[in-house]
């Protein structure tokens, strides 16, 4: 009854990864195995501090005996599994996922690795047709307060923000997926404005958004002004100055000013999640 449950070492499972025999701990996902072995695997909807929803399908791999490709982010390894991560089918599907997304969503402010993967897989979204002749999610940007900007023209519907708002972090449930099919979108109830919703402005949705659809208003405004310059930014990890939880803050600074705040996803205190004060309550450091 006493003390910490001691983590017993997990037994190893043997799989074949791209023709190479490897051993990984039982319970690992195929993606875990890929990362251990240094096999670069694209992901969009996966994050280390969220439950895998496996909806983007960009991490698919070929598993011998499986009729269709399987999402590596959520499929646990099994003894004897034979996995191919760079087969023709895998490359086609990954390229197509990027092409489908980039033809309907503005991806240019995505995380750098996303843009690198699109390049690596040779995505040519323009072959889907001219943007004004095909369906896209183009829509006006939502600016409803001084903290958040929601630019759903950049939303790839990875569900990360919904998870961070709900069961995986904040338990506020201010947003959910509404509508269906291509019309599916992230929304408050009846699309009420964010200040009229249950939102508590923790910004955890912004923290997990991979495409720049959800951003600090500071970032949005600087981008609009043309002053946002990530190459001129520094990131410093410190501890939030408010309550006693001890959340770690990553202060992103440019020209000696804080321009946004994130939190390390791998830190044991809050796994990358913050509250409104930690995320946005830093204006007094600017005055």
């Amino acid at each position: 009854m006493n003390g910490t449950p001691v983590g017993t070492p997990r037994p190893l499972v043997g799989i074949t990864l791209d023709g190479k025999a490897v051993k990984v701990p039982e319970g690992s996902t195929i993606l875990d195995a890929c990362r251990r072995e240094g096999v670069d695997t694209p992901t969009l909807c996966w994050a280390e501090n969220l439950t895998p929803v496996n909806v983007c399908r960009v991490c698919v791999v070929e598993v011998e005996g499986s009729r269709v490709l399987v999402p590596s982010c959520s499929r646990p390894v099994e003894e004897g599994m034979v996995v191919g991560t760079d087969t023709e089918r895998v490359r086609t599907s990954r390229r197509m996922v990027f092409e489908l997304l980039a033809s309907s969503v503005r991806m240019d402010r995505s995380d750098a690795d996303v843009l690198d993967w699109m390049d690596h897989y040779g995505a040519r979204p323009e072959r889907m047709g001219a943007r004004d002749e095909i369906a896209t999610v183009a829509q006006p940007v939502k600016v409803q307060d001084d903290l958040y900007v929601r630019d759903y023209e950049r939303c790839i519907l990875c569900y990360k923000c919904v998870e961070a708002c709900g069961d995986d972090a904040q338990h506020t449930y201010a947003i959910a997926t509404a509508g269906r099919g291509f019309d599916a979108h992230i929304s408050t109830e009846f699309d009420v404005t964010l200040p009229d919703s249950a939102c508590v402005y923790c910004g955890n949705c912004i923290g997990v958004c991979p495409t720049g659809a959800l951003v600090f208003k500071t970032e949005h405004d600087m981008r609009e002004e043309g002053t946002w310059d990530e190459s001129a930014q520094e990131v410093t990890t410190t501890v939030c100055g408010f309550c006693g939880v001890g959340c770690n803050l990553e202060l992103h600074t440019q020209d000696d000013r804080i321009v946004k705040v994130t939190s390390p996803a791998d830190h044991s205190v809050t796994h990358g999640h913050l509250c409104i004060k930690g995320r946005f309550g830093w204006q007094h450091a600017q005055s």
């Binding site: 909806v55 399908r57 996922v97 309907s104 997926t177 269906r180 599916a184």
Partner: peptide, 9 residues
Amino acid sequence: CGQCVPCRV
């Protein structure tokens, strides 16, 4: 349903 990219788009 709109959940996964291959089918939704």
